[in-house]
Design a protein around this nucleic acid. Structure first.
Lengths: 158, 158
DNA sequence: TTCTAGTATATTGTACGCAATTAATTAGAT
DNA sequence: ATCTAATTAATTGCGTACAATATACTAGAA
């Protein structure tokens, strides 16, 4: 007898809630950042660099969770727009140092002003905001290194 | 005097928590779905269709929150892999009806079995899982139709 | 020094996501 | 019936994501 499998409903899935929420936040930030011609991944790249400038591509990637396949073209676009500089490390030419331009340093308060409307619009007090974030991060940490179980499966391979 | 702007730290941002969590869940499902050669967006498309088959591209899009720019090529790939059929509606030729193939109907229990390991790995009981999802959906609804405030800004336009 | 393993970034290829536009079709008003 | 506005998909263009590979460089062992 086949093992009964619990039904999976789209709107009950945590993964789908996160997927949808992430896209909606992305959309919101895209509007807030439009005056600066910045995308959301470019914005978090700036956030990381404002906290720690300069960084190698690798260090930057470990902060924003993106690899060189994403960062290299992204950073080239940001360089074209004048947000960052890219320079080979003189001591170790494998590394590329990413540093903020003067424009990026100057624009920080303006960008923060545009983006800080986010929490207001959420209509959450700081406690609720922090609790929501921590809840998400809890699930995020749990799934981080999880590997799906190997299922015995002798049927047709789709 | 310039208005002081609160600092924004990457790891304290809800948007970044959601962005990271969404990517990690996506990665987890990618592994679980690899035996079926399905991506995560393709999987949620199947979830939607298993609940309501057939649907037009538009109806499907309203369930999974994707537009034709994403769905048209995605559905063509799924058709090539034998998961769905695409047929112009005979009564209204503007519409394209998407229906599940026999393969998709047959594979449902196997795919559910592979994916249902997710909640186990999260180490959450059903209550915690539901509460997490509801918390995410609460923030998601709040940001859904939010538009960033227009900020007075006479400085250089970046 | 020379070989080898390791490290850092870049490149390639595939698949989203979505804004904006186009094309085809339908429905509604006159 | 005909013209117009609305609706539905498809297309185009740009920017991620990321696995897999390639390339360049470094460091450590023999």
């Amino acid at each position: 007898m086949a093992t009964p499998t619990k039904n999976i409903l789209l709107d009950e899935q945590l993964c789908f809630a996160l997927y949808t929420a992430s896209k909606r936040f992305n959309h919101f930030y895209a509007e807030a950042l439009a005056p600066f011609k910045l995308t959301y991944p470019q914005y978090i790249t700036l956030l990381a660099l404002w906290e720690n400038n300069p960084m190698t591509v690798r260090e930057l990637g470990s902060h924003v969770n993106l690899d060189s396949g994403t960062l290299t073209p992204l950073l080239k676009r940001m360089q074209t727009q004048g947000w960052v500089e890219r320079k080979r490390d003189e001591n170790d030419e494998r590394q590329v140092n990413i540093s903020l331009s003067q424009k990026a340093l100057d624009a920080k308060p303006e960008i923060f002003a545009h983006v800080n409307t986010c929490m207001d619009l959420l209509g959450m007090d700081e406690k609720t905001y922090a609790a929501t974030r921590d809840t998400v991060n809890f699930a995020s940490e749990r799934i981080k290194n999880a590997k799906p179980k190997k299922i015995d499966y002798d049927g047709p391979q789709f």
